[in-house]
């Protein structure tokens, strides 16, 4: 494989591509962690948001609003630079990046899922209550399965946002694809001009994101009612 790339691109560009590809794994790890972590936290706040208890709902509303309003960039600065400076502690870049992206993801995911839950007709809840079922049971057995159908395409679609979001983490020195792209583009080496490096970086991101976008689109087609 390596030989083939060398043969096609020449030694220098082959090396560059391999460095970028190996940096891409950190982009993938961060995306996955943020997506799974954010999904779990988002799930909790989704349930809180529709719970029958008033103050829990308000808590969830505040949470979702807060982390949708804070720019991801500010989250990164706050966790990666602000907290270490303020509490005089050392926060590794990967931790700050993970926390930021997880919070960011959780807020948007619960917004998507709440929308999906609310789009399930009220009659479904009433029907469940008429059968004598409690809140948890109606949610779990009647409403959630229908909402899942509606929310799958936007959930997959949001993974694209998460991956693109991880590219900001280089700003607090997280060693991902973007950071290595920038390093190489700044290296002043012949053949590593910005107009070569950035399109290659873009292409790698595209390779990660485009299949997910298409998947989301095809899910939307197959899952839409009728």
């Amino acid at each position: 494989m390596t030989e083939l790339i060398q043969l096609l691109l020449g030694e220098f560009h082959a090396k560059m591509l391999l460095v970028l590809l190996s940096a891409t794994q950190w982009t993938i790890y961060l995306s996955l962690t943020a997506f799974i972590g954010g999904g779990l936290i988002g799930l909790i706040f989704t349930v809180l948001k529709i719970s029958p208890i008033g103050w829990l709902r308000r808590l969830a509303t505040a949470y979702i609003w807060l982390f949708q309003s804070i720019p991801l960039l500010m989250l990164l600065f706050l966790t990666g630079l602000g907290i270490p400076a303020f509490f005089k502690i050392d926060v590794p870049a990967w931790l700050a990046a993970t926390v930021s992206l997880t919070l960011f993801t959780s807020a948007y995911m619960s917004e998507v899922w709440r929308g999906a839950l609310e789009s399930v007709p009220k009659g479904q809840w009433e029907g469940g209550r008429a059968l004598g079922l409690g809140f948890n049971w109606i949610l779990y057995s009647i409403v959630a399965p229908q909402a899942l159908r509606i929310s799958t395409p936007p959930t997959v679609g949001f993974m694209v946002q998460v991956i693109k979001g991880t590219s900001m983490a280089y700003i607090i020195d997280y060693n991902d694809l973007m950071r290595w792209g920038k390093k190489i583009a700044n290296s002043q080496l012949d053949g590593a001009e910005p107009y070569i490096v950035y399109p290659v970086v873009a292409l790698i991101y595209f390779g990660l994101c485009f299949p997910l976008s298409q998947w989301s689109k095809s899910l939307e087609k197959t899952m839409s009612p009728k």
Binding site: I163, K164, M178, G181, K182, P194, A202, C209, F210, S213
Partner: peptide
Amino acid sequence: NTPFIVQLFF
């Protein structure tokens, strides 16, 4: 399907 920062740098 590509990040804004890459577009900006390009």
